[in-house]
């Protein structure tokens, strides 16, 4: 269970988040949609304790992230697949996570396997990875501790169609086993196919939320998105 309760975040002059409230139920995938600069990443960083809300609170599994014991066992996070040391191998990055979590090295092999990275790719440094490979690695890192909740910022970015299909299946399976998944994206069709519910934000405000069917209302999710965000994107303002 992931909950945002009236979360606001003000950076000097800019209101990055304005009274954001929504819930991600266990066993469901919630798609977090919005134009660039709408506040998706800010919300996710507040949720994972990397940034503080100006007011309101965000909790995972009933507690603020920073107050969870061994949070990575309970919440898997992928906040930026590009944020990796280019000189480290994929395997080493997973190994570092496994050390902190106290997991056996066999878990690293299992994860490489799960996210479709070969043993050879695992031995390569991340500097040579494509964005799609980094996304797979980042998702694998998030899954190391078999978490009950997943927070994924633009995980489908850079994945090829096979990769997107694979991730869709993986996230559906995880939700099917009771995981609460929050994923942000601007790839509307992708979200439409994997998410149970959608939260749309623009200029830091929740513009609409509901099931995919409720939001698209016959006109399709893409049109709904364009209509709702027409006047709310910082980039289009």
């Amino acid at each position: 269970m992931i909950e945002f309760n009236n979360v606001s975040k003000v950076y000097k002059e800019v209101k990055a988040l304005d009274d954001v409230s929504f819930t991600v139920e266990p066993g469901s995938v919630t798609g977090f949609l919005g134009p660039n600069g709408a506040g998706k990443s800010t919300a996710m960083r507040i949720l994972t304790g990397l940034s503080r809300p100006t007011s309101g609170s965000a909790t995972v599994l009933g507690r603020p992230y920073g107050q969870l014991d061994r949070p990575a066992y309970r919440v898997g996070t992928l906040l930026d697949a590009g944020a990796q040391h280019p000189g480290r191998t994929g395997r080493e990055i997973l190994t570092l996570g496994a050390i902190v979590l106290g997991l056996p090295r066999s878990r690293v092999d299992d994860i490489l396997d799960l996210v479709g990275l070969t043993a050879r790719q695992g031995r390569q440094t991340v500097g040579g990875y494509s964005l799609g490979m980094r996304q797979r690695l980042g998702l694998g890192h998030a899954l190391l501790g078999r978490p009950e909740a997943l927070v994924l910022d633009e995980p489908a970015n850079g994945l090829d169609p096979h990769g997107i299909q694979w991730m869709r299946g993986l996230l559906r399976d995880l939700a099917g086993s009771g995981c609460s998944v929050l994923l942000s994206s601007h790839l509307l069709h992708e979200v439409e196919q994997v998410a149970d519910r959608i939260v749309m934000i623009g200029r830091g405000r929740v513009l609409a939320q509901g099931t995919v069917g409720e939001l698209s209302g016959g006109r399709g999710l893409e049109q709904a998105f364009l209509d709702l965000t027409a006047h709310s994107g910082r980039s289009t303002a």
Binding site: L61, G62, R63, L68, D69, R70, Y73, H85, G87, R88, E92, T95, L96, I99, V100, L101, G102, T125
Partner: peptide, 26 residues
């Protein structure tokens, strides 16, 4: 709510951070 109340043991953090010092090309 049932939460495990064991924080990550410090020696694991220390092991990971020590590795980070030597596991990159630089």
């Amino acid at each position: 709510m049932t939460h495990p109340t064991i924080p990550t043991p410090f020696h694991r953090l220390l092991r990971a951070e020590t590795r980070k010092l030597f596991d990159t090309r630089s």
